[in-house]
Nucleic acid binder design. Sequence first.
DNA 1: GTAGAGGTTGACGCCGCGTCAACTTCAACC
DNA 2: GGTTGAAGTTGACGCGGCGTCAACCTCTAC
Lengths: 256, 256
Amino acid sequence: MQWSIQEIARLTGVTSRTLRHYDAVGLLPAARTTASGPRRYDRTALVRLQRILLLRDLGLGLGDIAEVLDTDQGEAEALRTHLVSLRAEQDRLARQIASVERTVAALEKDPDTKEDIMAKDMFDGFDHTQYEQEVTERWGRDAYQKSDAWWRGLGEQGQQQWKARLETLIKAWTDAAEAGLDPASDEAQAIAARHAEWLVAVPGTPGHEQGRPDRGYLLGLADMYVADERFAANYGGTEGATFVRDVLRVYADQVY
Amino acid sequence: MQWSIQEIARLTGVTSRTLRHYDAVGLLPAARTTASGPRRYDRTALVRLQRILLLRDLGLGLGDIAEVLDTDQGEAEALRTHLVSLRAEQDRLARQIASVERTVAALEKDPDTKEDIMAKDMFDGFDHTQYEQEVTERWGRDAYQKSDAWWRGLGEQGQQQWKARLETLIKAWTDAAEAGLDPASDEAQAIAARHAEWLVAVPGTPGHEQGRPDRGYLLGLADMYVADERFAANYGGTEGATFVRDVLRVYADQVY
DNA sequence: GTAGAGGTTGACGCCGCGTCAACTTCAACC
DNA sequence: GGTTGAAGTTGACGCGGCGTCAACCTCTAC
């Protein structure tokens, strides 16, 4: 008993193109009568195809399916391995959805609150300020999660205090810049130290566990203060931000 | 203030390749000094890049990002639309995971129970037996869900009864085949009618709502009884299954 | 002069096919 | 004999978002 490619297609619900593809990649070779004639499928092929489709519907890739079918490895084992990546993907999706929801909610509130400055400075910094590629791998996406959870946990009062601390810092920076302090001076370096402390207090900050900010993170953030005008605006424009950056660079050279 | 491609890469954590890609597709054009010289980026570009990366991390495609940035449409609106597809994907994943778990559990039990015959006949049939492409779209993946829920809802006793009904049917088929009945005879057609009833009683079966199986589904299943030896084994091998198929074909011609 | 760092364009690869395109073969009908 | 149509074939592009060579140019430092 043999069937043409169309008959197999109708029997199983896949397209003939798919069957040719499976033939081309060797997943389901067709038994041809001649070298380049029409493909013919027998019962063995049909059974194999049904196992293929079952595993495909479960989300396995064609390569994995071939491995399961050709080596005599346990099907259940492969599926359990597959489950792990499915669950990982599920977690990733859940986090992403939560993130999108937060963003939508934030967009619908007034976008010019003090809180927003903070968010720009801290949270966006986590996401996109990265000085070295190697560093990229160390502080993953969960940094945002941690810091966000911490922030909510602070409560109204704690958040107010935090904002006040930020404003004090900013005032110190702008005053120092206007006074024309030497970036290497003790006064300027003191502000840098306070700034580093302020940053590292947040869980999720690269270096939080070590008690001082990651060097690459700090330098990248310093550059970003100058480069991004939204950050720069917080520190008295480009000039002020440049001063902050220079001080932080000296600080980093001395401390690390 | 301008930056080279590497500087931007370090500042934002993306690779230079990515920046060239964004330039190539027009998402983030670089301001070049000459036609084919090194790319230079200014503050405007940096800010745009950061918005791009934010939206990218939220899962938007580059095309959607370009649309959001270039047309003056609301960002929140785009994100809400995006949320819909994210949630759909989440549901799909959840179903798939449940399906894999069921399969793993089934594989770890004894694979040669009566229940398995049923599963092969009914559930796999829903998944992969399709006679016409148009039919494919009508009975989606939820058929399995429905029938599975129904099966569990039957309880021990109900499942026993169901299996008994199946065995009675199978015996009728094999007896008729051995007796050499004419497929068009009343006796054979009566078995076909009982078979159709038996099938359609399951919620999720194509045609369940109409009270009789979908014609394409029935014909496809009949073909599968012959084509797939695991099915054929239930009906007394290829010969028996061929008889069943022929009877069902006549039945389909007469009833529909 | 040469090495090295950083830039350029161009092209392939991944995954699972959908979707033309261009062609052949075979049976059926006039 | 010619025509038409159904069903088959191979070959190639496209999608999404880049990673990863490859081959080449340019500038600076020793």
